[in-house]
């Protein structure tokens, strides 16, 4: 149960970063930390103590394997997280080229 609470603490650290930082790159880093904590949580749910990796081989019975379903879902989510991170960073660099700063307090003119 400790590991679940620790991964929840990591999610709270990421939320704190999103809420308090004023730098766009720091906000992107905090979002990445939130993503990591959720991947960790989902991978922790499917774990069976003493289980093997879900790859069939001679000598490994199907009964002692960790759950393959959360792993497949997290794999999808990791790739999507990479795509969204790349897009966020692209938007950040375009905003820097336009305003000359990463400070979100000074990027507030939403005029064309």
């Amino acid at each position: 149960m400790t590991v679940f609470i620790l991964s929840f603490l990591m999610l709270l650290v990421g939320v704190h970063g999103v809420l308090t930082r004023r730098n766009l790159i720091k906000v992107v880093i905090s979002l990445t930390i939130i993503e990591f904590s959720i991947f960790l949580m989902l991978a922790l749910i499917g774990f069976i103590s003493g289980g093997e990796a879900p790859i069939l081989d001679a000598g490994i019975s199907a009964g002692r394997m960790v759950d393959p379903l959360p792993q497949a879902m997290v794999l999808t989510a990791i790739v999507i997280a990479l795509a969204t991170n790349a897009m966020l960073l692209t938007i950040a660099i375009r905003l820097y080229k336009k305003y000359g700063t990463f400070d979100i307090r000074r990027i507030n003119e939403l005029k064309g």
């Binding site: 499917g46 774990f47 790859i55 794999l75 790349a86």
Partner: peptide, 22 residues
């Protein structure tokens, strides 16, 4: 440690690409 080698491989690739972009 959680016996998820596929996730480990894809996470290494994703983390490296994200670091390079950042």
């Amino acid at each position: 440690i959680l016996r998820a080698p596929d996730l480990a491989i894809i996470q290494i690739v994703m983390e490296t690409v994200t670091l390079i972009i950042m």
